[in-house]
Simulated assay, not measured.
Amino acid sequence: MAETMEQLVITKASGEHVLFSVGKLKLSLRKSGASDEVIQEVLRLLEPKLYEGIPTKKIYKHAFAILKKLSKSTAARYSLKQGVMQLGPSGFPFEKFVAELLNVQGYTTEIGVFIDGQCVRHEIDVVASKDGKRYMIECKYHNLHHNKSDVKIPMYIQSRFKDVEKVWPSEHEFEIRFHQGWVVTNTRFTEDAIRYASCANLHLVGWDFPHKGGIKDMVDSFALYPLTCLTTLSHTEKQHLLDMRVVLCKELLHNEALLHKAGVRDKRIHSVLDEVENLCGS
Protein backbone atom coordinates (compact mmCIF):
# COMPACT_ATOMS: atom_id res chain seq x y z
CA MET A 1 0.00 0.00 0.00
CA ALA A 2 2.63 2.56 1.08
CA GLU A 3 4.87 1.71 -1.89
CA THR A 4 2.04 2.37 -4.37
CA MET A 5 1.07 5.64 -2.70
CA GLU A 6 4.69 6.85 -2.68
CA GLN A 7 4.73 6.65 -6.50
CA LEU A 8 1.78 9.02 -6.79
CA VAL A 9 2.37 12.55 -8.09
CA ILE A 10 0.34 15.18 -6.22
CA THR A 11 -0.20 18.94 -6.70
CA LYS A 12 0.82 21.40 -3.98
CA ALA A 13 -1.07 24.67 -3.36
CA SER A 14 1.67 26.51 -5.27
CA GLY A 15 0.95 24.38 -8.35
CA GLU A 16 4.19 22.41 -7.97
CA HIS A 17 4.00 18.65 -8.71
CA VAL A 18 5.77 16.39 -6.20
CA LEU A 19 5.73 12.76 -5.13
CA PHE A 20 3.30 11.96 -2.33
CA SER A 21 5.07 11.33 1.00
CA VAL A 22 3.37 8.68 3.12
CA GLY A 23 6.00 9.39 5.79
CA LYS A 24 4.96 13.04 6.12
CA LEU A 25 1.29 12.07 6.40
CA LYS A 26 2.08 9.46 9.06
CA LEU A 27 4.13 12.00 11.00
CA SER A 28 1.37 14.63 10.94
CA LEU A 29 -1.17 12.03 12.09
CA ARG A 30 1.14 10.82 14.85
CA LYS A 31 1.77 14.40 16.03
CA SER A 32 -2.01 14.81 16.21
CA GLY A 33 -2.17 11.92 18.68
CA ALA A 34 -3.22 9.13 16.32
CA SER A 35 -2.23 5.60 17.33
CA ASP A 36 -0.43 3.27 14.92
CA GLU A 37 -3.71 1.39 14.40
CA VAL A 38 -5.57 4.60 13.54
CA ILE A 39 -2.80 5.71 11.18
CA GLN A 40 -2.94 2.40 9.29
CA GLU A 41 -6.73 2.63 9.04
CA VAL A 42 -6.52 6.20 7.69
CA LEU A 43 -4.02 5.07 5.03
CA ARG A 44 -6.17 2.04 4.12
CA LEU A 45 -9.31 4.14 3.64
CA LEU A 46 -7.45 7.02 1.99
CA GLU A 47 -5.71 5.04 -0.76
CA PRO A 48 -8.81 4.40 -2.95
CA LYS A 49 -9.58 8.14 -2.95
CA LEU A 50 -6.20 9.17 -4.35
CA TYR A 51 -5.49 9.81 -8.02
CA GLU A 52 -2.66 11.20 -10.15
CA GLY A 53 -2.27 14.96 -9.67
CA ILE A 54 -4.66 15.18 -6.70
CA PRO A 55 -4.29 18.54 -4.87
CA THR A 56 -2.86 18.39 -1.36
CA LYS A 57 -5.97 20.23 -0.16
CA LYS A 58 -8.14 17.29 -1.24
CA ILE A 59 -5.82 14.79 0.44
CA TYR A 60 -6.15 16.75 3.68
CA LYS A 61 -9.96 16.86 3.38
CA HIS A 62 -10.18 13.09 2.79
CA ALA A 63 -7.77 12.30 5.65
CA PHE A 64 -9.62 14.67 7.98
CA ALA A 65 -13.01 13.15 7.15
CA ILE A 66 -11.68 9.63 7.83
CA LEU A 67 -9.97 10.71 11.04
CA LYS A 68 -13.10 12.49 12.25
CA LYS A 69 -14.99 9.17 12.18
CA LEU A 70 -12.20 7.38 14.04
CA SER A 71 -11.31 9.99 16.69
CA LYS A 72 -12.82 13.49 16.91
CA SER A 73 -10.17 14.94 19.24
CA THR A 74 -7.37 13.60 17.01
CA ALA A 75 -9.11 15.11 13.98
CA ALA A 76 -9.36 18.43 15.83
CA ARG A 77 -5.59 18.44 16.46
CA TYR A 78 -4.95 17.41 12.86
CA SER A 79 -7.01 20.40 11.68
CA LEU A 80 -5.11 22.92 13.85
CA LYS A 81 -3.65 24.86 10.92
CA GLN A 82 -7.04 25.09 9.23
CA GLY A 83 -8.62 26.02 12.56
CA VAL A 84 -6.24 28.95 13.00
CA MET A 85 -7.05 29.99 9.41
CA GLN A 86 -10.72 30.24 10.44
CA LEU A 87 -10.01 32.81 13.17
CA GLY A 88 -10.28 35.71 10.71
CA PRO A 89 -11.08 37.98 9.11
CA SER A 90 -11.70 40.67 11.76
CA GLY A 91 -8.23 40.27 13.32
CA PHE A 92 -9.33 40.30 16.96
CA PRO A 93 -9.69 36.50 17.40
CA PHE A 94 -6.13 35.94 16.12
CA GLU A 95 -4.80 38.74 18.34
CA LYS A 96 -6.51 37.24 21.39
CA PHE A 97 -5.18 33.82 20.42
CA VAL A 98 -1.61 35.21 20.25
CA ALA A 99 -2.06 37.01 23.59
CA GLU A 100 -3.24 33.77 25.24
CA LEU A 101 -0.20 31.90 23.92
CA LEU A 102 1.98 34.55 25.61
CA ASN A 103 -0.05 34.71 28.85
CA VAL A 104 0.50 31.02 29.53
CA GLN A 105 4.26 31.65 29.24
CA GLY A 106 4.25 34.32 31.94
CA TYR A 107 3.70 37.47 29.87
CA THR A 108 1.07 40.04 30.73
CA THR A 109 -0.70 41.29 27.62
CA GLU A 110 -3.00 44.02 26.34
CA ILE A 111 -4.82 43.92 23.00
CA GLY A 112 -5.47 46.88 20.71
CA VAL A 113 -3.46 49.56 22.52
CA PHE A 114 -3.24 53.07 21.04
CA ILE A 115 0.12 54.77 21.52
CA ASP A 116 1.45 58.11 20.30
CA GLY A 117 4.67 57.89 18.36
CA GLN A 118 7.08 60.70 17.61
CA CYS A 119 5.32 61.28 14.27
CA VAL A 120 1.87 59.60 14.36
CA ARG A 121 -0.51 57.65 16.60
CA HIS A 122 -0.39 53.84 16.33
CA GLU A 123 -2.70 50.98 17.27
CA ILE A 124 -0.56 48.12 18.59
CA ASP A 125 -2.15 44.66 18.16
CA VAL A 126 -0.64 43.20 21.35
CA VAL A 127 1.56 44.78 24.00
CA ALA A 128 3.35 42.13 26.08
CA SER A 129 5.44 42.56 29.22
CA LYS A 130 7.74 40.17 31.06
CA ASP A 131 10.76 40.54 33.36
CA GLY A 132 10.69 44.33 33.15
CA LYS A 133 10.65 44.45 29.34
CA ARG A 134 7.84 45.43 26.98
CA TYR A 135 7.26 44.14 23.48
CA MET A 136 5.30 45.67 20.62
CA ILE A 137 3.63 42.85 18.67
CA GLU A 138 2.05 43.02 15.22
CA CYS A 139 -0.20 40.08 14.29
CA LYS A 140 -0.38 39.23 10.57
CA TYR A 141 -3.26 36.89 9.87
CA HIS A 142 -3.55 35.10 6.51
CA ASN A 143 -6.51 32.99 5.39
CA LEU A 144 -4.55 30.93 2.86
CA HIS A 145 -1.74 28.47 3.67
CA HIS A 146 0.56 29.58 0.85
CA ASN A 147 0.42 33.31 1.72
CA LYS A 148 3.80 34.12 3.22
CA SER A 149 4.75 37.28 5.07
CA ASP A 150 7.40 38.92 2.90
CA VAL A 151 10.15 41.39 3.77
CA LYS A 152 7.83 44.42 3.47
CA ILE A 153 6.03 43.38 6.67
CA PRO A 154 9.03 43.38 9.07
CA MET A 155 10.31 46.56 7.39
CA TYR A 156 6.95 48.24 8.02
CA ILE A 157 6.82 47.01 11.63
CA GLN A 158 10.37 48.19 12.23
CA SER A 159 9.46 51.70 11.08
CA ARG A 160 6.47 51.73 13.46
CA PHE A 161 8.62 50.35 16.27
CA LYS A 162 11.18 53.13 15.79
CA ASP A 163 8.40 55.75 15.93
CA VAL A 164 7.10 54.49 19.31
CA GLU A 165 10.25 52.92 20.77
CA LYS A 166 11.18 55.83 23.04
CA VAL A 167 9.32 58.61 24.79
CA TRP A 168 11.03 61.87 25.71
CA PRO A 169 9.85 63.06 29.15
CA SER A 170 12.23 66.01 28.95
CA GLU A 171 14.34 67.71 26.35
CA HIS A 172 17.55 65.87 27.23
CA GLU A 173 16.38 62.44 28.44
CA PHE A 174 14.37 59.54 27.10
CA GLU A 175 12.80 56.40 28.52
CA ILE A 176 12.54 53.11 26.63
CA ARG A 177 8.88 52.41 25.96
CA PHE A 178 9.42 49.16 24.02
CA HIS A 179 12.45 46.89 24.04
CA GLN A 180 11.70 44.91 20.89
CA GLY A 181 9.22 44.63 18.05
CA TRP A 182 7.65 41.29 17.15
CA VAL A 183 5.78 40.02 14.10
CA VAL A 184 3.52 36.98 14.59
CA THR A 185 1.87 35.25 11.63
CA ASN A 186 -0.15 32.06 11.21
CA THR A 187 1.72 31.10 8.03
CA ARG A 188 5.42 31.43 7.14
CA PHE A 189 8.00 34.13 6.41
CA THR A 190 10.09 34.49 3.28
CA GLU A 191 13.87 34.11 3.56
CA ASP A 192 14.32 37.86 3.02
CA ALA A 193 11.88 38.62 5.83
CA ILE A 194 13.82 36.36 8.20
CA ARG A 195 17.14 37.87 7.11
CA TYR A 196 15.94 41.45 7.57
CA ALA A 197 14.36 40.73 10.98
CA SER A 198 17.59 39.16 12.22
CA CYS A 199 19.56 42.21 11.10
CA ALA A 200 17.05 44.65 12.64
CA ASN A 201 16.63 42.68 15.92
CA LEU A 202 12.94 42.00 15.26
CA HIS A 203 11.51 38.80 16.72
CA LEU A 204 9.52 36.65 14.28
CA VAL A 205 7.02 33.93 15.19
CA GLY A 206 5.39 31.93 12.40
CA TRP A 207 3.53 28.66 12.01
CA ASP A 208 6.73 26.62 12.45
CA PHE A 209 9.29 29.38 13.07
CA PRO A 210 11.50 29.56 15.06
CA HIS A 211 12.32 25.88 15.44
CA LYS A 212 10.43 24.52 18.47
CA GLY A 213 9.01 27.98 19.13
CA GLY A 214 6.42 28.46 16.41
CA ILE A 215 2.66 28.70 16.83
CA LYS A 216 2.05 24.98 16.26
CA ASP A 217 4.61 23.99 18.92
CA MET A 218 3.16 26.45 21.43
CA VAL A 219 -0.41 25.28 20.86
CA ASP A 220 0.55 21.63 21.26
CA SER A 221 2.69 22.34 24.34
CA PHE A 222 -0.02 24.25 26.22
CA ALA A 223 -3.17 22.65 24.70
CA LEU A 224 -4.40 26.12 23.69
CA TYR A 225 -6.46 24.99 20.73
CA PRO A 226 -8.73 27.52 19.01
CA LEU A 227 -12.40 26.53 19.13
CA THR A 228 -12.40 26.61 15.32
CA CYS A 229 -10.63 23.20 15.46
CA LEU A 230 -13.67 21.52 16.99
CA THR A 231 -15.37 18.99 14.72
CA THR A 232 -18.66 18.94 16.68
CA LEU A 233 -19.51 22.62 16.09
CA SER A 234 -20.93 23.99 12.85
CA HIS A 235 -19.31 26.93 11.06
CA THR A 236 -22.22 29.16 12.15
CA GLU A 237 -21.87 28.13 15.82
CA LYS A 238 -18.13 28.81 15.72
CA GLN A 239 -18.77 32.24 14.24
CA HIS A 240 -21.33 33.04 16.95
CA LEU A 241 -18.72 32.21 19.60
CA LEU A 242 -16.03 34.28 17.85
CA ASP A 243 -18.49 37.18 17.67
CA MET A 244 -18.84 36.85 21.46
CA ARG A 245 -15.02 37.11 21.66
CA VAL A 246 -14.65 33.48 22.69
CA VAL A 247 -11.59 32.05 20.94
CA LEU A 248 -10.17 29.05 22.84
CA CYS A 249 -11.53 25.56 23.44
CA LYS A 250 -10.65 25.87 27.12
CA GLU A 251 -13.17 28.71 27.46
CA LEU A 252 -15.89 26.17 26.68
CA LEU A 253 -14.84 23.68 29.37
CA HIS A 254 -17.89 22.95 31.59
CA ASN A 255 -19.59 26.01 30.08
CA GLU A 256 -22.95 24.91 28.71
CA ALA A 257 -24.29 28.47 28.92
CA LEU A 258 -21.86 29.72 26.27
CA LEU A 259 -22.80 26.88 23.94
CA HIS A 260 -26.51 27.58 24.44
CA LYS A 261 -25.89 31.23 23.65
CA ALA A 262 -24.11 30.22 20.43
CA GLY A 263 -27.19 28.25 19.37
CA VAL A 264 -25.97 24.71 20.10
CA ARG A 265 -28.94 22.40 20.71
CA ASP A 266 -29.25 20.48 23.98
CA LYS A 267 -28.90 17.08 22.32
CA ARG A 268 -25.47 18.06 20.89
CA ILE A 269 -23.99 19.91 23.85
CA HIS A 270 -22.76 16.72 25.52
CA SER A 271 -20.80 15.64 22.43
CA VAL A 272 -19.26 19.13 22.09
CA LEU A 273 -18.19 19.17 25.74
CA ASP A 274 -16.77 15.65 25.40
CA GLU A 275 -14.61 16.76 22.47
CA VAL A 276 -13.49 19.88 24.36
CA GLU A 277 -12.56 17.76 27.39
CA ASN A 278 -10.59 15.26 25.27
CA LEU A 279 -8.82 18.03 23.40
CA CYS A 280 -7.78 20.39 26.18
CA GLY A 281 -9.28 19.22 29.47
CA SER A 282 -5.96 18.00 30.82
Rank of each mutant, 00 (worst) to 15 (best):
M5C: 04
M5T: 07
E6K: 04
E6W: 01
L8F: 06
T11F: 10
A13V: 01
G15V: 04
F20E: 05
F20R: 15
L27Q: 14
K31A: 01
E37V: 13
E37N: 09
E37C: 03
V38A: 04
I39W: 11
E41T: 06
L45S: 06
E52D: 12
P55R: 05
P55N: 01
K58M: 13
K58D: 10
K68L: 06
K69H: 02
T74F: 13
A75S: 10
Y78C: 07
M85D: 09
V104A: 02
Q105C: 11
I124C: 14
D125V: 14
D125W: 08
M136I: 00
M136H: 01
E138M: 00
C139V: 14
H146A: 06
K148Q: 13
D150F: 13
I157H: 02
F161K: 07
E175M: 06
F189V: 01
T190M: 03
A193E: 08
Y196C: 02
A197Q: 05
N201F: 04
H203A: 10
F209Y: 15
K212W: 05
G213S: 10
K216T: 07
D217F: 14
M218Y: 11
L227H: 04
L230K: 06
S234N: 04
H235N: 11
H235Q: 11
E237Y: 07
D243Q: 15
R245D: 14
E251P: 06
L252R: 04
H254V: 09
N255H: 10
E256N: 05
L258H: 01
K261Q: 09
R268Y: 09
D274E: 04
